[in-house]
């Protein structure tokens, strides 16, 4: 009997080992697929502009490594540094303001029961079903009347991204709902006001979700092409990196700008990726919670 089980475990172990071998093989293949584009973009950003070609070629690893493309970005021939700063300013401002707005909305909807609460939530849900770009022209003219297009595109973009952010309360509210209400009640009995409960109790407890909210709001502006290009229209120094680099690829002769785009892309991706990776734990918590509660 003992021998029999031993035999069984040995054969199971072997089967498991074979299974694991294929699993590892699959994981390695997946990793190569996932990493290849990033590997390619980094390699091509180092391709020499002088001795080789700035466009499409049929090899990945450059024949001569050089910093030509990076030098070009910092040379002042284009507004790259300005674009970068623009994006950084927008992202930082949006991250702070949007997080504040979402916390306010979530706390009110999670903890307070007031007249029109259900109506508000339903109304916002329905509003969310309208496609965002539908309102683009109207927003453009609204911003134009207060001077926040072209030269003023950066505060304009911040305003638009922050103004409607209250509708994105779902994940944060869902998290706050899980904080026991008994804690609130105990604090209320001790004479704490609603505002005090928010600041001294809810904020520390909701820290993971606040970090998640700030992270997501910080990352979104780096990709904002559509609206940014529309309201900065034709005003080069108001572009953000997405608009500027997209133009290099699609509007300009991309054969000359391809490796420069790669270099710019690498510079954009590094800080965002580093930030994301360091806060990954909070991100996972946010998306998982959000997915389950819907």
């Amino acid at each position: 009997m003992a021998k029999n089980t031993e035999k069984k475990t040995v054969s199971m172990k072997r089967r498991q080992r074979v299974g694991n071998f294929f699993s590892y093989l699959l994981l390695i293949v997946l990793s190569i697929i996932w990493l290849f584009p990033f590997f390619g973009i980094v390699m091509q950003s180092f391709r020499s502009y002088q001795t080789e070609f700035g466009g499409m070629v049929n090899y990945v690893i450059p024949k001569q490594f050089s910093l030509d493309n990076y030098k070009f970005l910092f040379s002042g021939e284009t507004n790259f540094l300005k674009w970068y700063m623009n994006t950084l300013i927008i992202a930082a401002a949006v991250a702070v303001l949007q997080t504040i707005i979402i916390i306010c909305t979530s706390y009110a909807l999670s903890r307070m029961r007031f007249k029109g609460r259900n109506f508000l939530m339903r109304f916002w849900l329905i509003l969310g079903m309208f496609p965002g770009f539908l309102t683009m022209i109207c927003l453009y003219f609204l911003l134009k009347t207060i001077g926040l297009t072209q030269q003023g595109a950066i505060p304009g973009l911040i305003l638009v991204s922050v103004a409607s952010s209250g509708m994105g309360y779902y994940v944060c509210k869902g998290y706050m709902d899980t904080v026991p209400k008994a804690l609130d009640e105990a604090a209320r009995i001790d004479g704490a006001s609603r505002a005090r409960i928010l600041f001294t109790m809810m904020l520390p407890m909701a820290k993971p979700i606040i970090i998640y909210t700030a992270l997501v709001s910080f990352m979104a502006p780096w990709c904002d092409y559509i609206f940014a290009s529309y309201i900065a229209f034709g005003h080069d120094s108001s572009y953000n990196v997405a608009v500027a680099l997209y133009r290099w690829m699609k509007v300009n002769d991309y054969q000359g700008f391809f490796t420069r785009f790669c270099a710019g892309g690498v510079l954009v991706a590094i800080p965002v990726t580093a930030l994301f990776m360091s806060l990954q734990k909070y991100y996972v918590e946010g998306v998982t919670g959000g997915a389950v509660k819907g």
Partner: peptide, 15 residues
């Protein structure tokens, strides 16, 4: 795998 979430889409998708 998570790299594709971290890198801004306009960089990765355009590339």
């Amino acid at each position: 795998l998570v790299l594709t979430i971290a890198v801004p889409q306009f960089v990765s998708l355009l590339y």
